[in-house]
């Protein structure tokens, strides 16, 4: 595998590494799946098949919450290069919009749909009143970073102001479960898992095949080039926020429904996991968010077989650091070129 021989320019070395990273990307996933399979077998041998399989199912559930919540985050980070610390609070907005619409008399499924639309609208509003002006004012990274934290606080405390900070529930049945032989999976968790996986697949496909999806990827890759190709960048930015907000709303609703009990701070507690999934999966990659979420979910749940569950978050994040040492760009990440 060498660079095209006709060129002896300085770019040659660069090109070779690009080729390597392209080739490495699918094999990284393969290696990861292989490692996970080996770990599963080892755990099954040590702790028994049923407990290991149950922990695996639980890991998938936890991973799907995280993965779905992380898609919107990874899109905004990858496309707009914005570390959106307010993303967790968009999830909260989704859950509380549902409560609001249900209180206004809408049946729950309609209230949920309305809540997703409202969260998307909220995300778009934040673009119009915060991010667009900041971008035009050429705000630096630190300013954007602090604005995101501030915006998150504003959303969270607005929710607290209108809805109170007490524990809420969406009233769904959280105790029903499906028996798969000796294994158990909560009915709502199964729904959350399926909807989550479907949403991630759909977003991945849409990014790959629709016009706006390609425009988003082009924008993420090189904004100036996207512009000279005739891509309306503000439209891409707006769409990114709408999609990100819609998915944040969905993730917030699914999480709130399946976990059963929440308060306006749940977004903040989720945020770290969402960032972890984003970074581990490779920034800007919807499938990466899924895989990153699943890796974190599985490793945390598997760790409960070996250690007391109180160490679960520590184990998950230790593993995250370890994996980033080996693949700093994340599982689906691409080496950044200097172009």
């Amino acid at each position: 595998m060498s660079a095209t021989p006709t060129v002896r320019a300085s770019a040659a070395e660069d090109d070779a590494s690009a080729v390597r990273s392209r080739l490495a990307s699918p094999s990284r996933l393969t290696v990861l799946v292989a490692v996970m399979a080996v770990v599963f077998c080892l755990l099954a041998a040590l702790f028994g098949l049923v407990p290991t399989a149950q922990a695996t199912i639980n890991g998938f559930v936890a991973g799907s919450y995280t993965g779905l919540g992380a898609i919107g985050l990874t899109l905004v980070l990858g496309i707009l290069k914005l570390v959106n610390f307010a993303h967790g609070d968009l999830l909260v907005a989704g859950a509380y919009f549902t409560i609001l619409f249900a209180w206004l008399g809408l049946p729950l499924p309609l209230a949920m749909l309305g809540a997703m639309v409202a969260t998307a609208a909220l995300a778009l509003v934040t673009e119009k009143i915060v991010w667009q002006p900041l971008r035009q004012a050429k705000a630096g990274t630190l300013q954007l970073f602090l604005s995101a934290i501030g915006l998150g606080l504003v959303i969270r405390f607005s929710v607290q102001f209108f809805a109170g900070s007490q524990v809420r529930t969406l009233g769904a049945n959280v105790v029903d479960s499906i028996a798969l032989g000796p294994l158990r999976l909560g009915t709502l968790q199964a729904v959350a898992l399926l909807v989550g996986l479907a949403a991630m697949l759909l977003v991945g496909l849409a990014l790959r095949f629709t016009g706006i999806g390609k425009e988003m990827r082009a924008f993420a890759d090189n904004r100036a080039l996207a512009e000279v190709s005739g891509i309306d960048t503000q439209h891409v930015i707006n769409m990114t926020w709408i999609v990100s907000g819609f998915l944040a709303g969905l993730a917030g609703i699914l999480y709130a429904t399946a976990i059963g009990s929440f308060n306006p701070n749940f977004g903040l507690t989720l945020l770290l996991s969402l960032f972890a999934a984003t970074v581990l999966g490779g920034i800007g990659n919807a499938y990466g968010a899924l895989v990153g979420g699943l890796v974190i979910g599985l490793s945390q749940e598997w760790s409960t077989l070996m250690f007391n569950a109180r160490w679960k978050p520590a184990v998950g994040f230790a593993l995250l650091i370890l994996m980033l040492l080996f693949m700093p760009q994340g599982i689906f990440g691409r080496k950044k070129r200097g172009s």
């Binding site: 936890a62 968790q189 679960k312």
Partner: peptide
Amino acid sequence: FDPQQQSFDS
């Protein structure tokens, strides 16, 4: 368990 965990099934 940690109160901020996302799942408690395991």
